[in-house]
Amino acid sequence: MRYSAFLAFSVFLMVTQTVVLYEMSAALRFYDLLVPLVIYFSLYRPFREGLPIILLTGIMMDMLSAAPIGIYMTVYLWLYVAFRQTWRVIQVKQNLLFPMVVTAGVLFENIVFCIIIILQNGVPGLFPDAVNMIGAQLLWAVFTSPFMLILLHALFQLFDRLGAGNLQESEQS
């Protein structure tokens, strides 16, 4: 039940990214909305919850995109593992740092994409306005990720309450 809710929320973010934002304006150049989710799983949720959802989400994104198969899954896994290790050393779990962490995640994802594109097509393969595109995404990440954090906190609290309710019901029965 809980995993279904997590997965449904991932799909909701995917649809928002590929349909809603596209309908609003194709020129928005919004960042990958799954990055904050991956980082949230990495920082705030147990390993057994995060890993399967991230793998599935990555595979789904790979299937939707024209990017080389596996790139999204790889990026999400790297982000997940990297931030999971990082918070043991640095206090990145502080809410105030979340926008910085998400921005770093978005930057990392874009760098990986750039490397792949350069490997495939050479430097001319990059968009002429690649720097603007990455810059726009980073700005969006800085300004919107605090709201994402609030949304994610609220949603996961709701999922936890629902999960606890289900557990009690099953124990009683």
Binding site: Q17, T18, Y22, D32, M61, L64, A67, Y72, I117
Partner: peptide, 14 residues
């Protein structure tokens, strides 16, 4: 056209 590519680096539509 119902959707677009999730990545701004690639150009596909569904």
């Amino acid at each position: 056209v119902v959707a677009t590519d999730p990545s701004p680096w690639y150009r596909t539509v569904i």
